[in-house]
């Protein structure tokens, strides 16, 4: 029940944020934020329900990671949108958890309701650290993706009424650029911990900390993209559109690491 409730509320929150972007009525921005918070509460209950049913942390398969991933995205969105007072952010971030849950319902289908037994290989505390750090780092990258999209839209070429309209709805580009950097700087050390805790776990489970499994490889590729983003920004003084495109590319790599690898590149992470 909580799955559909969460999905619907996230959908409404995303819609509300989109409407705020369209008509710029402050109450719509506030309502969308409150809806996002309500969705987050429902998402928390969904995770708790699953944890109670499974009698363990619900971090053992693709569906359980999706609901945790959505939770992480929305938590970081709520913090950033509240602290930085950016009501339009929801229009760029909230469709992500909504679409992830739609994907879970439509593609994963009836199997998502079934709580399966954990195979011995997943019975490790390192799994909990590994997935929890992934939830927060991927959540941060989703929010930085939204901020970068906003930047690209805000700083897009054009003049006259359309550009003025964008300026009225979105924060200054420099602020968006800076915020995207800060969110990535928060997520990057966590992504490093994702890879390291995964390596430790792999070493306990399979006797090897690195086997160039597609999931590992794409996590490393994602790490590399964000490492380039940070170095280019801090050392080469990259700012603006180049930085924003790198952040977008980084989140595409995040999504491919999670979905693309599972569906296109078989490996040791068949359960994830």
């Amino acid at each position: 029940m909580f799955l559909y409730l969460t999905m619907i509320i996230y959908g409404l929150a995303a819609l509300g944020s989109g409407l705020y972007m369209a008509v710029k009525q402050p109450f719509l921005g506030r309502a969308a934020y409150i809806a996002g918070a309500a969705g987050f509460a429902a998402n928390t209950l969904l995770i708790a329900e699953r944890a109670l049913a499974a009698q363990r942390w619900p971090l053992a398969n693709g569906y359980e990671f999706i609901i945790s991933f959505c939770w992480g995205i929305v938590l970081i969105f709520l913090v950033v949108a509240y602290r930085c007072k950016i009501p339009a952010l929801g229009a760029f971030v909230l469709p992500c958890p909504f679409l992830l849950l739609v994907f879970a319902v439509l593609i994963m289908g009836r199997d998502i309701g079934v709580v399966t037994a954990m195979p011995p290989v997943l019975k490790s505390n390192w799994l909990t650290f590994h997935v929890l750090t992934a939830v927060f780092s991927y959540g941060a990258f989703a929010v930085s993706f939204g901020l970068s999209l906003m930047y690209l839209l805000r700083s897009g070429s054009g003049s006259g009424a359309a550009a003025a309209d964008r300026s009225a709805r979105l924060p200054a580009p420099e602020r968006l650029d800076d915020l995207a950097y800060r969110v990535i700087a928060f997520g990057f050390p966590l992504l490093t911990l994702v890879i390291i805790t995964g390596a430790i776990w792999a070493n306990y489970a399979w006797g090897t900390y690195w086997s160039w499994d597609p999931k590992e490889t794409w996590a490393l590729i994602t790490w590399g993209i964000y490492a380039i983003y940070l170095h280019a920004r801090l050392v080469l003084r990259w700012r603006g559109r180049r930085s924003a495109w790198l952040a977008v590319l980084g989140f595409i790599a995040v999504l491919f690491t999670f979905f693309g690898v599972n569906f296109l590149l078989p490996g040791l992470h068949s359960y994830a």
């Binding site: 160039w212 597609p214 490889t217 794409w218 490393l220 590729i221 590399g224 993209i225 490492a227 380039i228 170095h231 280019a232 080469l236 690898v261 590149l265």
Partner: peptide
């Protein structure tokens, strides 16, 4: 260093 990291990423992707 960044160029080498980019090369590493490209070849890692190709390897997968």
């Amino acid at each position: 260093g960044l160029g080498l990291l980019a090369l590493l990423i490209i070849f890692s992707g190709l390897g997968s």
